[in-house]
Amino acid sequence: MITLSKKLKEDAARKSSGSNSKSPDLNNSTKRVSIRDRLLIKEVPEMTSSLPKTCKVHFPDVHKLHHSLLTISPEEGYWKDGKFIFELTLTEEYNIAPPKVRCKTKIWHPNISEEGQICLSLLREHSMDGTGWAPTRTLTDVVWGLNALFTDLLNFDDPLNIEAADHYLRDKRDFEVKVQRYVRNYAR
């Protein structure tokens, strides 16, 4: 991929021209990063080529594949017509540690807090059942999982935003009105 070859060239250039005293530390840090980056070289094309049709991915800096913005535009359901932006950040510990995901768009949703925290089992770092994060999972699974929060994985029974879940159980019609108000105000 273009971004990797550029990065390798840059690293090589830095190594050959850079000050010798600094180079060992520099090498170490680039090496550690490269495990994640080498995984991403394979995972990113796989993810972008198998996106749900409601999703778009954008890399603000093409040299940082570990930082991406995912836009989900649900075609049906309560959040229809909204555009919800999720920020995915992969630390150097990826794929031992799961991606960190926040919802940048304010939303009224039982599994997403108004501050953007997300309750999705596969993003859970320490999970004792089989549904949490595992290094066998990839970015593709994360994107499909987030997308499913608007469809199959929408869960009113184990909510993060308890108020929103109660709202739905109390008055579905009013819940829908509030969701659509949030969509109009924040998710266009």
Binding site: I96, E125, H126, S127, M128, D129, G130, A134, P135, T136
Partner: peptide, 17 residues
């Protein structure tokens, strides 16, 4: 080496749990 990193976090087989 891969597995020893993973078991620190979760002492389960990532494939079969």
């Amino acid at each position: 080496c891969c597995m020893s990193l993973w078991v620190k976090q979760n002492n389960r087989c990532p494939l079969c749990q």
